[in-house]
Design a protein around this nucleic acid. Sequence first.
DNA 1: AGCTGGTGTGAGAGCGCTCTCACAGTGTGA
DNA 2: TCACACTGTGAGAGCGCTCTCACACCAGCT
Lengths: 335, 335
Amino acid sequence: MPAKRLPTLEDVAARAGVSRATASRVVNADPRVGRLAREAVQEAIVELGYRPNRNARSLVRPEVDSIAVVVPEAEETVFSDPFFAALLAAITQSLADSPVQVLLAMGQPGDSQKIERYLRGGYTDGAIVVSHHKDDHIWQVLTATKLPAVYVGRPYAGDVGIPYVDVDNRAGGALAAQQLVSTGRRRIGTITGAMDMAASEDRLAGWREQLHSAGLDAGLVEHGDFSAASGAVAIRRLLKREPQLDGVFVASDLMAVAAVHELQAAGRKVPEEIAVVGFDNSQAAELTRPPLTTVVNPVTALAGTAVKLLLRLLEEQPVESRVILETKLVRRASA
Amino acid sequence: MPAKRLPTLEDVAARAGVSRATASRVVNADPRVGRLAREAVQEAIVELGYRPNRNARSLVRPEVDSIAVVVPEAEETVFSDPFFAALLAAITQSLADSPVQVLLAMGQPGDSQKIERYLRGGYTDGAIVVSHHKDDHIWQVLTATKLPAVYVGRPYAGDVGIPYVDVDNRAGGALAAQQLVSTGRRRIGTITGAMDMAASEDRLAGWREQLHSAGLDAGLVEHGDFSAASGAVAIRRLLKREPQLDGVFVASDLMAVAAVHELQAAGRKVPEEIAVVGFDNSQAAELTRPPLTTVVNPVTALAGTAVKLLLRLLEEQPVESRVILETKLVRRASA
DNA sequence: AGCTGGTGTGAGAGCGCTCTCACAGTGTGA
DNA sequence: TCACACTGTGAGAGCGCTCTCACACCAGCT
């Protein structure tokens, strides 16, 4: 029930005493308009409070005007997890100078229906999917509707015909393990992320590989879910299983910080008695005591690459089917 | 250059051997369609990867489909400041069950041009403006284009004809001061937020009022800008001006946590030697040591009310011109 | 047989805009 | 003087969709 109809270009044109075409030219800053007509139109726009109808414009001039950032996680998680926050900031940032809008689509990981409906609904021109879980069917929707999309993080299902950017998680896990091994740790555990995500698998695989080649036991694995709480629980389990634990690789800084607190509460000195290596190199890694040795997750590059790939996809240009970014270890006090 | 034209409803209809009208009915789940026709259309949709064109639909059926959350702050700030993060999460959350999309418009506080262009551009049906500064002209744009909008936080310019929701910042400041006074503090300072924002003014006014009525000096004021760094700087200045400082009200938890750390680094015991009261009751207030006594900023209610008001505005229903939410003090260890 | 009402379907208008095309008006050079 | 280009403007088609209206068809009644 649009009680008061918004002013249209037609109204503006009528008021300015010109044709709709001329009014349109003024709105779009077309230079071939006479001084008088231009001023009359501009005046009419102000008087009527005219605001172009984006839908009508997009209908006739089909340009890219929005991309969705899809995060199949609960809203609180998205805004409180520093990795997502940083990623979102970086994505928005890298689109700041373009007229492309960023839409945020979130939702419980279990219930991806809402997101799927969203993607099918034609709300957006393209999608960047972050934090993909094993069980969601997002990629199938993307494929079925041919919606241009890019994943951040390798899709669990493997190559599904959608390009992705990822950090070399396997190498990262190996780097972390190597740091622990090379500083003389011998009873090394790991706390993984949610195991329905490829990143968790890869980090674990890298850690395992490295321990094996050092001839160490790679069985001290506990599964977290990337949340702080799960990090605390996991380290307690690990300690119970192996009281002599002297090193641990934690698959995210958020969990690592929680684990360190837990260790300190249990009277264990970090790093003297037990070394901790995190993953992400988030701000928390720097601020916590002791500062966290951690594997760099190059969020800005990840976001930038994803945006670049998607924009190319939207222009129908060929793109790499995957881009793997290198990682490195930042040595601080915790290991 | 749309090389491959996307399938339209016309294409679907042709493939299914029905009219466009019938295809449209199937897409919109209109029950008055025969079994055969329905199945044929559904099949055609899958085969063609059809996805409705939102613009065309919105053109003819003008419904609310997106609202913008406008935050005139830098992207990093928005995602790292817990107040914004919580507010965004709450806004998104309260729109989660409606088909309304949330658009995020951010930008440097100084340069509100980008945001203004955005609001004028007809990208959205309504706006929730958060963190309004004295110098931005956002409200003028909103008024000029008659874009339905709601402010979170009293607009600096006062009543500008745009409804707003706010917490009672003045009462909050008074509450904080009262807590300090009533626990025997006598040399009480305050660290304000950015002074080009109404919230900062109001919190300061409440604090000042309370000190006056207790017969205490209300001159120990240092200005921050709501960032952690500014909190640290301000507390140092305060200590320099008044080494006997025994209480301080900090206008946000983020600054308060930084101030506490700074105090501890300077060897002052909190709360024994100096009591600290924050504002926001963010998660950090609970987690920091000692836990922060702080004034509650009811983020969820703020967000919910703003959304409710805006939706009513969009339905052309009358709304209150302002809603002021009550606040209270949460007593923890820091004061 | 004719009438009524319900059901499924199609034709076509029109949402607000852009853009092509045509054309009037004004110089400019042969 | 006429042909020519160039500039500014308007008429009108059409983007993909929804929705009204009309109508064909069939059942069940008189």
